[in-house]
Structures are given as structure tokens and as C-alpha cells.
Design a protein around this nucleic acid. Structure first.
Length: 209
DNA sequence: AGGACGATTAACT
DNA sequence: GTTAATCGTCCTC
């Protein structure tokens, strides 16, 4: 499956369900200016929540202090702490009041590599800088302080930007990673063959939308 | 008030 | 492939 990364990912499009928005996010750029600028091209995402029960979603039991941002406007940044260690980033999707989001699982650093290396001292190679959701958050210098930030605000510290010109990314889809419920739902999309993807092994290629 | 667990990572065998 | 690190969140009592 392919898409045209030049289609504007505006608030209206982000109001679509997470499984619609998720594949459109692969290939787009995310730029953080929480410190020295770092820009990644998103290579791996997962959809959560939306209409109907998704038991793997943080919001499946209703609103709590942590997941409140998931119920807010599309285009906001939902940040949560994983395993007491790792800040993970999501793009809020769907209409306000219906909790859904797309987890940003990996990216390829295309600008600010030196800054990303400083923040990710454990990374052996540049390919590891933002390979995995916790690593992505670290490379971008994002913490829970940015939960609720508007990714479409031109003056914001974290911004969602269009794809670089060129060929749209070839996408593969498969089951989500690291969850124990609703494990068979094919809601993980990634850039086929990109080295920054956290896991290339695809279990079910044929369930692509 | 207590405790199990997690949309993870890094180091180690 | 296995396991420790580490703590906020949320469910249960």
C-alpha cells in the first residue's frame, strides 16, 4: 500500500479513526525543538482505541488522569511513561470525546543527528537512535511535560511536518507489538525495509487495508 | 493502602 | 533468548 505524503495532514484528516490516520503518518516528519532541533521521518506506527472496543488501548476503561489527552482534539500529542523509564509519543486522532491515538514507534533521524546521539548515548549506531518508541521519545528530547501539546501549532515545540518530496513509502502492516490483549488486530504499519523499524518480521502481511 | 503490571530498553548468556 | 531496571497508573480491598 502506498500513499501520497503531500496530502495535508490537517485537523480534519486527523479526525479520522486511528487505523485510517496511522498509515498516513508513515513518511511524515516530526520535528522537536525542545532543545537543539531534531527531525525524524516516521517509519513505524500503531493505532489504538477508536470506535469499538480495543482492549489494548489505554482508554478502553474510560477516562483517567493519564489518558485524558486521548479524548481531546485530534492533532494533540499524547505522552505517557512506559515501565517507569521511557516516554512514548502518540498523535491523538478521531473526533474529540472519542479516545484514540497513533503510537509513534520509530523514526529515522534526518536532522540534528549530533543532538540525537548526545541524548541516546547507549545507541551503538545511528539506526538505533529512534528505533523503538522509548528511543524515539529520548532522541527527540520529549517528556511528559509535553503531553497535550498541539502538533499542528507552527510555534509548538514538537511539530508534525509533511513528508519529504519523492516517492511515497512502501508500507507493510501487521499485528501490534508489546501488548497482551487484542494481539491479532493488524494495526501496526511500517516502512518496508527501513532499518529504523523496531521489528521487520511481519506475521500477517496479507491483512493490509 | 497495597500490589500487580506495563503500547520498553539494554545488557547479558 | 532471558532478565533486571524502575515507577506511575489503576484496580482491588
Amino acid at each position: 500500500m502506498r500513499h501520497d505524503g503531500r496530502v495535508p495532514l490537517d485537523r480534519e484528516l486527523l479526525a479520522c479513526p486511528p487505523e485510517v490516520v496511522a498509515p498516513l503518518l508513515v513518511g511524515r516528519r516530526l520535528r522537536s525543538t525542545t532543545g537543539p532541533a531534531v527531525t525524524v521521518v516516521l517509519t513505524e506506527v500503531e493505532a489504538y482505541g477508536g470506535v469499538g472496543a480495543d482492549e489494548a488501548s489505554h482508554a478502553h476503561r474510560g477516562r483517567t488522569p493519564r489518558n485524558t489527552t486521548m479524548f481531546d482534539r485530534p492533532g494533540l500529542l499524547y505522552v505517557y511513561l512506559s515501565h517507569g523509564l521511557h516516554w512514548c509519543l502518540n498523535v491523538v486522532t478521531g473526533v474529540e470525546g472519542e479516545a484514540s491515538a497513533v503510537l509513534l514507534r520509530a523514526g529515522r533521524v534526518v536532522d540534528g543527528v549530533e543532538t540525537a546521539r548526545d541524548r541516546r548515548a547507549a545507541a551503538r549506531t545511528d539506526r538505533d537512535l529512534a528505533r523503538g518508541p522509548g528511543r524515539l521519545g529520548a532522541a527527540l528530547g520529549v517528556t511528559g511535560a509535553l503531553d497535550g501539546a498541539d502538533l499542528l501549532d507552527p510555534a509548538g515545540a514538537v511539530r508534525l511536518l509533511p513528508a519529504e518530496p519523492g516517492r511515497p513509502p512502501p508500507l507493510l502492516v501487521g499485528p501490534r507489538i508489546g501488548i497482551s490483549k487484542a494481539v491479532d488486530r493488524p494495526w501496526r504499519w511500517h516502512w518496508s525495509g527501513d532499518p529504523s523499524v523496531s521489528r521487520q518480521r511481519i506475521v500477517k502481511v496479507n491483512e493490509a487495508i
